[in-house]
Design a protein around this nucleic acid. Structure first.
Length: 286
DNA sequence: CATATGTCCTGAGAGC
DNA sequence: TGCTCTCAGGACATAT
């Protein structure tokens, strides 16, 4: 489930690995089907060991570690992946261990992390080491749209206004706008008071402005609460600490409960493109 | 070209 | 209790 707020929180909480040197790279032996790692582990190790981590970034829903070799280690958690600098929730789902030598970052700050772990229960995620050209091709236009926190209202409208898809489905399109997933799409449209079933080409300019404003508001809130840890308890930040935005969800996972705005209608759950959508039929009429 | 559907994977929870 | 079935939704492959 990690979407923009969760991945951004992961990125921020691995700050203590910036300025460290990679000492050792190990694929963890576990009974589970191996996750995708590229290049293969021996090549990965050769290109990683001895490199310094110089910065952390986020590319949509991926955590990016910049190295002094000008390569980037790209970690994509998909549904259940975690990037950790602390002890993992359990050992059996640990997929990759990178041991670090602590040091100092360029800004003189202490780099205290002695490990960077990739943990993934379902194993849909991946870890990839990419050269600069590979990175640019994979995450530049047209493969990845502008980040949801950077995009302007007019840009968002331009990129989606001609689409015939339902606006909820279109907001999940990472080529259109990067970072929004199923949970936050529902929250955003509730705040914007826009019907998730409405086709993009039927929305007016003012509706796009509302969707854009709601996007900024919801994502900023969610980052402030360090993301959403749902009932299964999977999501944690890099220090293995739960998020708390789940306590502030307006509609996601709240089918049958009274709408937090009108208090009259119940929150409804429908399915769009094989994914659950939650909304209030009387508040979201735009 | 745009849009829709199927697939990957594991574990939790429902229902019998 | 223990089995089978369904569901969760990231990104990408394939189909329409």
């Amino acid at each position: 489930m990690p979407e923009l707020p969760e991945v951004e929180t992961m990125r921020r909480t691995i700050g203590s690995c910036v300025g460290t040197r990679i000492e050792q790279v190990e694929r963890c032996a576990c009974r589970l089907k191996p996750i995708q790692v590229s290049p293969r582990i021996d090549h990965l190790r050769r290109r990683l060991v001895g490199r310094n981590i110089v910065a952390t970034e986020r590319a949509g829903k991926r955590v990016v570690l910049r190295l002094d070799s000008d390569e980037a280690l790209v970690i994509e958690p998909r549904m259940t992946g975690l990037v950790l600098v602390a002890a993992p929730p359990d050992e059996e789902h640990l997929r990759l261990r990178i041991n670090l030598k602590p040091g100092f970052a360029r800004n003189g700050r202490a780099a205290t992390a002695d490990r960077l772990l990739y943990w993934d229960r379902r194993g849909l995620g991946s870890v990839r080491l990419m050269r600069a050209d590979e990175f640019a091709a994979a995450f530049g236009p047209p493969n990845l749209g502008p980040d949801a926190l950077q995009i302007s209202a007019e840009q968002l409208r331009e990129r989606l206004r001609a689409s015939r898809r339902a606006v909820k489905v279109a907001l999940l399109d990472q080529q259109a706008v990067a970072g929004i997933g199923n949970l936050y799409a529902a929250e955003i449209l509730f705040v914007a008071e826009v019907d998730p079933r409405k086709r993009c080409d039927r929305l007016r300019r003012v509706d796009w402005q509302r969707v854009h404003a709601a996007t900024q508001k919801v994502l900023a809130e969610a980052i402030r609460y360090e993301g959403s840890t749902l009932a299964d308890g999977t999501y944690r930040n890099a220090l293995n600490k739960q998020g708390s935005y789940q306590n502030h969800h307006r509609v996601y996972g709240r089918a049958g409960e009274p709408c937090p705005r009108c208090g009259e209608q119940e929150v409804r759950r429908i399915v769009q493109a094989q994914r659950a959508t939650f909304f209030c039929p009387s508040c979201q009429k735009r």
